[in-house]
């Protein structure tokens, strides 16, 4: 990860709540503006929490949550696979629920709490789901992987909460099964098709959660 990201985190953590971050949108992408640019004309301010850190951004209202993360916060772990809600690579957790970050505007998330793949774990301190993906080879090219993992974490929560799926036989009784996991994970396409390995990874984490 780029050093500036580390720095920003440090600043944020040390700086307390609701601080403006001129370095985020203004300086980083704004410094090289051409004179004729009218960026800034119709900018909106939005403030939300990303992986525990409060951030304030000056954004073009057209900016999706996905692009706010990738381009403005430089949190590139969240991937752009289709930008149209057709692949699931951009899956993040907002207020604990998984959504496609490509189909929502950043400005619509004022006050929200967003968790991205970077918020789940780091290479030296992996989240159990991340570790299980490594153990079970639940990926190949790695591009859909952050979305798969965010989705997988949320799926276990959804089953725990008793939310039914298309695979649920009795709407009143939701039980964890491979068929449930496959159906619920179907919004995350993996063209390398690590599908059975991903299901094995989720199963392992689910078993660990019960234990």
């Amino acid at each position: 990860m780029a050093p500036d990201h580390v720095t920003r985190r440090a600043v944020l953590q040390g700086g307390g709540a609701a601080m403006a971050l001129p370095g985020v949108a203004g300086a980083e992408t704004g410094a090289m503006l051409s004179p004729e640019s009218n960026r800034g004309r119709d900018m909106s301010t939005v403030e939300f929490t990303v992986n525990g850190d409060r951030v304030q951004l000056q954004l073009d209202p057209r900016t999706t949550l996905l692009d706010a993360l990738r381009e403005h916060l430089q949190l590139t772990g969240t991937k752009k696979g289709c930008d149209h809600g057709q692949c699931g690579a951009c899956t993040v957790l907002v207020e604990g629920q998984r959504i496609n970050s490509c189909l929502t505007l950043a400005v619509m998330h004022e006050g929200d709490s967003v968790t991205t793949i970077e918020g789940l774990g780091t290479p030296k301190n992996l989240h159990p789901m991340q570790r299980a993906f490594v153990t079970h080879d639940g990926y190949q090219c790695g591009y859909c992987t952050p979305g798969q993992i965010c989705s997988a974490v949320a799926v276990l929560g959804e089953i725990e909460a008793g939310i039914p799926s298309h695979a649920t036989e009795d709407l009143e009784h939701v039980v964890l099964s491979d068929a449930e996991l496959r159906e619920r994970m179907s919004g995350n396409i993996c063209r390398c098709a690590a599908y059975p390995n991903i299901i094995a990874a989720i199963r392992e984490v689910a078993a660990g959660d019960e234990a």
């Binding site: 809600g85 699931g88 998984r98 959504i99 496609n100 189909l103 959804e158 919004g187 995350n188």
Partner: peptide
């Protein structure tokens, strides 16, 4: 319920 669950994906249904 059944119709909703047959549509889209978990992520899309959450939004």
């Amino acid at each position: 319920s059944r119709a909703l669950l047959a549509g889209a994906s978990g992520q899309l249904r959450n939004k």
